[in-house]
Nucleic acid binder design. Structure first.
Length: 852
DNA sequence: GCAAGGTC
């Protein structure tokens, strides 16, 4: 019997598709990666009986990244990112997706791909084929691998897809490869360049990353565009005639308003003369407010933001949680129409006993209205509740999102809101005024979607045709036009959707990005107000190359990519062309960055003006400025150089000591009272002097052979907690505090309280540790024999034991080494002892290495 | 420390 492997895009879909195709007979087991399940049954494939295995991936298997040194910000020029090699890497290594698929594919004869029917899905088809290519023979052959094309998750559609299997479309997949490569190269090149450029010049930028991206930047552009409209807005005065009749009722003027005072005055003077208004006509009509379409992702995000005050990012996190707990259906979908066979009444029935919706659910059940027809995008059914919940089952916001989804669902099956509008038309000396009353006839869906309730239920108009109504008062009112408001998050989502920026899944990510990077702030009513940084960035792009911030940039790119997808253009040619265009744009941007910089200059303070004088530069001997704002930096305004500093903590001047290599003053970094600390040279920290010293290293990682602060001279033993680190004597807070700190992990051992001096000897203990000499003031010596100075091993010398801070790891170590005492000098090379620390690297070998 | 796109 042949075996057919079938793969969906996510675990939930594999389960429901398997259930449909097996007529509910599939058995399920968890895959070895813990995330995916495998559903198995026996059925018929190509007229023979066959074993089916249905599993899934979790989105993309792999993602694109740069190779090796091109991932380092310091080892390459951003322009290189347009031409450097790239490689595919596991998207989520812990899922072990390729291994999982390969293991399930063993022994399979056919592959049927049930990935989502869009370009990303087509791309994942090829990722799946790659993953199983060593396990399924001829996986690229059209007699082995098939593509199921479905447009709804319904039995009819799915079984039809199974009966009319097609082949994966490589062109569509390649267009996604191209998009990935372009996004990566463009985004990273611009981001690295502008981040380094502006961080090297300003001290008070409120973001530690100045990112650029083909989606996030136009998204920011929308917010700044509205800001500009507000700034440029000039209020205009206008006038209108306000008539009040008796009984008290203000009429609306048909001319609404007039922008010339003289003209308005003429009308005012005319109307003012009259005592009566004549009712010329009274007309009525029924109006409707339509029940909502079935709920999709974008609408959920918009309503959460505008109605519940919950941002799209958080709203989607909540929706996903509700989904995985089985309370709602899959929350990422564009579709706004229920599948034809969807059991709407079944869902409604879930809520008949609910305290919250019971009455509404029963009413709607008895007065069931067919939902409005929306769009079927062929992805997933609209978002609906799946299970009844009570208020007490969730925290506040989760409840509010769930409550919204339920009410929206019931709303789609309710009647439209209906009201009667009656308009009376008045004539006053030829001028027309009106009065309209709106009377609710049927609250319809707003009974359950109460926030949309009819607000202006008024008394019906009392007027009849031909009535003469007494005019009580006539006024000429002056007013001014007002500026627009900042974009609401909900407006922004609509704009992004309209311009094709991001997808339903990525829209909240982009919005989150521009807030996290401090380009916009979320104000009252979830309105997005750009920050100075956001404004300056967008205006800067507009000065240099407006296309960089235009929403059309993404769609133009998509157009190019579609040529690949449709097979009308060659993948290589399109990609090469697009990369070249953006490479030139990037070059132009770099050479003209001063245009953007002139905007930064006005808004931010230069490094030279920020921070405090701190320590001396090794090149010019002048004091450098210490900028403590994130990211912490030292700036030498004379040399115009910026040196980054360790993240967090503080870097104080270290006794005016100097690095023997470059003459820079040493700093002592400390992450706090009981945290890590080490000395470092700001120059070496940014430009490691030795090949075995990585960037961002302190002196405790420096292998300088003779410097008194180096690892070579202060290293005591290999770390007792981690594999790769060395415990190094840390004198930065001596003589108050002496300690050993690991140069790799967080391990710290406090030693020799109140000691005058601690030094690391040349000799080693037989356990492999360097011996240490400690000296105390005579009156403070802790030793029983009254000696004020002793040499021994921190770990083995009994007299040192009480002077080493109790530490679990130290305790363990003592058990392994009961011997105490002095050096075992002359006893030959220390035997390798299991469970005992390895000695620090051999000093002579290191010395030799430098002089080669 | 970068992008955007899937999804857990």
């Amino acid at each position: 019997m042949k075996t057919v492997l079938m793969v969906a895009e996510k675990p939930s879909l594999a389960a429901s598709l398997a259930n449909i195709l097996s007529n509910g007979k599939a058995t399920s087991r968890k895959g070895f990666n813990g995330a995916c399940s495998v559903h198995e049954w026996v059925g018929t494939f190509r007229d023979s009986s066959a074993k089916f295995k249905f599993t899934s991936v979790c989105g993309h298997i792999s993602g694109l990244d740069f190779v090796g040194k091109f991932n380092s910000w310091d080892k390459c020029d951003p322009i290189d990112l347009f031409s450097c090699p790239t490689e595919k890497k596991d998207a989520t290594p812990k899922l072990k997706m390729p291994q999982f698929l390969a293991s399930e594919a063993k022994g399979c004869d056919y592959l049927v791909l049930w990935l989502d029917c869009d370009k990303e899905g087509e791309n994942i088809c090829f990722e799946v084929m790659d993953a199983v290519s060593s396990c399924i023979r001829n996986v690229r052959s059209t007699s082995v691998t098939f593509r199921a094309k479905f447009s709804a998750i319904t039995e009819k559609d799915i079984k039809n897809a199974m009966a009319t299997l097609q082949f994966p479309n490589e062109n569509e997949s390649r267009s996604v490869d191209a998009r990935q490569e372009l996004d990566l190269r463009i985004g990273c090149a611009f981001t690295r360049f502008q981040t380094k450029f502006f961080q090297g010049r300003y001290g008070d930028l409120d973001s530690s990353l100045i990112s650029f991206g083909p989606c996030q930047t136009p998204t920011l552009g929308f917010c700044v565009q509205r800001h500009d409209e507000i700034q440029q807005f000039k209020p205009e005065s206008f006038w209108y005639v306000q008539v009040t009749v008796d009984p008290e009722q203000k009429l609306e003027w048909q001319r609404v308003r007039i922008f010339e005072k003289e003209v308005a005055m003429i009308f005012y003077n005319m109307v003012k003369e009259q005592k009566e208004a004549i009712v010329e006509s009274v007309t009525s009509k029924d109006n409707f407010k339509s029940r909502p379409l079935a709920l999709n992702t974008v609408e959920l995000m918009r309503s959460a933001s505008s109605g519940l005050g919950i941002g799209p990012h958080v709203a989607m996190q909540i929706a996903e949680k509700l989904y995985t707990q089985g309370y709602i259906s899959y929350p990422r979908t564009e579709t706004t129409t229920y599948p034809t066979n969807f059991d709407l009444r079944g869902v409604l029935k879930l809520f008949e006993r609910s305290n919250e919706y019971g009455d509404e659910a029963k009413n709607v059940m008895n007065d069931f209205v067919q939902p409005k027809k929306g769009t079927d995008c062929g992805d997933h059914p609209p978002i609906t509740p799946m299970k009844m919940a009570n208020r007490s089952d969730f925290d506040g916001d989760t409840w509010r999102v769930y409550d919204y989804i339920v009410r929206h669902f019931i709303g789609t099956l309710s009647r439209d809101l209906k009201y009667k509008s009656t308009t009376a038309k008045f004539i006053i000396d030829g001028e027309i005024f009106t009065s309209t009353s709106n009377v609710l006839i049927d609250a319809g869906y707003t009974k359950v979607m109460t926030w949309q309730a009819f607000g202006k239920n008024e008394l019906s108009n009392p007027y009849n045709k031909g009535d003469r109504v007494l005019i009580k008062d006539v006024k000429l009112i002056e007013s001014q036009t007002g500026p627009p408001s900042y974009l609401t998050e909900s407006d922004l989502i609509s704009l992004m959707e309209k311009h094709g920026i991001g997808t339903d899944a990525s829209i909240p990510v982009h919005i989150n990005n521009i807030t996290q990077r401090n380009y916009v702030s979320v104000e009252a009513g979830r309105r997005l107000k750009p920050t100075t940084l956001g404004i300056v960035l967008v205006h800067g792009y507009q000065k240099i190359d407006p296309e960089l911030v235009l929403p059309t940039m993404r769609s133009a790119l998509e157009k190019q990519l579609n040529l690949i997808a449709h097979g009308t253009a060659d993948f290589r040619a399109v990609l090469k062309h697009a990369i070249e265009i953006f490479r030139l744009k990037f070059q132009y941007f770099v050479t003209n960055i001063t245009n953007m910089d002139s905007l930064f200059e006005v808004s931010f303070s230069s490094l030279a003006d920020s921070g405090k004088s701190h320590s001396r530069c090794g090149k010019c001997r002048r004091y450098m400025k210490y900028i403590q704002q994130k990211p912490a930096r030292l700036h030498c305004s004379h040399c115009d150089e910026t040196y980054s500093l360790p993240v967090g903590g503080i870097a104080r001047v270290y006794r005016e000591l100097k690095c023997p290599l470059d003459d820079f003053e040493l700093l002592a970094w400390s992450s706090g009272n009981k945290g890590r600390s080490f000395p470092f040279c700001p120059y070496c920290y940014n430009n490691p002097p030795f090949p075995d010293m990585t960037r961002a290293s302190g002196c405790n990682n420096c292998t300088h052979p003779t410097c008194q602060h180096s690892l070579t001279n202060l290293g005591v033993s290999s770390c007792i907690e981690c594999d790769k680190g060395v415990l190094v004597l840390d004198c930065t807070s001596s003589p108050k505090n002496w300690k050993l700190g690991c140069n790799s992990c967080d391990c710290i051992i406090n030693i020799f309280d109140d000691a005058l001096k601690v030094t690391v000897d040349e000799d080693t203990c037989e356990c492999g540790s360097q011996l240490v000499t400690v000296a105390y003031k005579q009156e403070k010596t802790p030793f029983a024999d009254g000696d004020d100075k002793k040499t021994g091993c921190i770990f083995c010398f009994n007299e040192f034991m009480p002077l080493i801070e109790k530490h679990k790891a130290v305790e363990n170590r003592r058990l392994n080494s009961s011997r105490g005492g002095r050096s075992s000098r002359g006893r030959g090379k220390g035997r390798p002892n299991r469970g005992r620390p390895k000695p620090p690297k051999d000093k002579m070998a290191q010395l030799a290495a430098y002089f080669v």
